[in-house]
């Protein structure tokens, strides 16, 4: 598919500057909120008007955007949810009276990609994929096609979603967050429904240029199903198609502690080679629709640095050096993706 060059990530962890994936910040009241950096590069007047999703999205993207990619492709399920509900609250509380449009304009899901295009004066391709748990996977597929159509181009690719008080409520009422307090890796031992909330923005400079690349996106496969047997069959096919049977691969599992989804992860672990190391990341990222973007960022970082701190590990194989990471993510038991990243 294509190569990742410059990668950035604003997340609950130290992923933006002074990167440290060893010492992990635990969730507070079952939320992993982003650690926002000082945003140099965004004028204060503009920064003040930005909601969190736009702020972290633009903040993570700006350095890459300044390298003049040929377009901007973002995956986000909700965009600026906080602004959306702020505007909604105005509508109801002022009974559709005189309202200010700022929150409305910021609330459109395409606001992150639009602001990146605007601030970096990028008149190229600009698209926002919003298909929930597969928004970022579709964004990657879009970039793959763009790079096949224009082999010398480069694109800014990213995924971003925020926790706002409002979507937290909605997801909580929907039964997607745990009621008992989670401290970290105990997330996986609860045998109860729900997970912990997360948010973040991960951005990538993508091109066909192998030189100086950090990692390569080898393959993406996405589908909708509630049948764990189908997931297992598809994973088997994916492993065969990508000749992973004999390799020492890190299986990066999107396991999120939700007992209702465990059958998918168990079925997938049955399929993988015993030489695969199994690691998990949701205690680091929390659960959110475009979390696979941060999983890809982590995968690139782990491959580049060849470090995998123990807190990620579920089962370790005897082989310690891996050249490929296979991410399996599952959103709400119906949206599934396999993403294969390799060292160049």
């Amino acid at each position: 598919m294509f190569y990742f060059h410059h990668i950035t990530c604003i997340s609950p962890q130290k992923t933006f500057a002074d990167i440290d994936i060893e010492n992990i910040k635990p969730p507070v009241e079952n939320k992993l909120l982003v650690a926002e950096p000082v945003y140099d590069g965004i004028p204060l007047g503009i920064l003040r008007r930005m909601g969190k999703a736009v702020r972290i999205g633009v903040g993570a993207a700006l350095k890459i955007a300044k390298q003049n990619p040929n377009g901007v492709v973002i995956g986000t399920a909700n965009g600026g949810m906080e602004d959306c509900i702020k505007f909604l609250n105005q509508i109801i509380e002022y009974d559709e009276g005189i309202l200010t449009p700022t929150n409305f304009v910021q609330s459109t899901t395409n606001a992150v990609a639009a602001q990146i295009g605007l601030m970096s004066v990028n008149k190229g391709y600009n698209c926002t994929h919003v298909h929930r748990g597969l928004a970022f996977e579709n964004a990657m597929t879009d970039v793959d096609m763009l790079l096949k159509e224009n082999s010398s181009h480069s694109y800014l690719l990213g995924g971003v979603d925020e926790i706002s008080a409002y979507n937290y409520n909605i997801e909580l009422l929907g039964g997607w967050y745990k009621k008992e307090k989670i401290a970290g890796v105990d997330l996986y031992d609860q045998n109860s429904a729900g997970s912990i909330a997360g948010e973040g923005a991960a951005m990538f400079w993508a091109s066909n240029n192998e030189q100086n690349a950090i990692a390569k996106l080898q393959a993406v496969r996405m589908f909708h199903s509630e049948d764990e047997n189908l997931i297992a069959d598809e994973l088997k096919k994916f492993i065969e198609e990508n000749y992973l049977e004999e390799e020492s691969v890190l299986f990066f599992s999107g396991e999120n502690g939700d007992s209702r989804l465990q059958k998918y992860y168990s079925a997938s672990e049955e399929i993988i080679n015993k030489d695969f190391t199994v690691a998990r990341f949701k205690h680091v990222t929390g659960e959110y629709p475009s979390v696979s973007a941060m999983a890809v960022w982590l995968a690139c970082y782990i491959l580049k640095e060849q470090i995998l701190p123990d807190h990620f590990l579920k089962y370790s194989s005897s082989k310690k050096d891996f050249s490929k990471i296979l991410i399996y993510n599952n959103y709400k038991g119906i949206q599934h993706s396999f993403i294969l990243i390799s060292r160049k």
Binding site: T109, N110, N126, T128, V130, H131, N138, T141
Partner: peptide, 8 residues
């Protein structure tokens, strides 16, 4: 492949 796009 299923996708939803929002570019306003």
């Amino acid at each position: 492949i299923i996708n939803t796009i929002n570019t306003a």
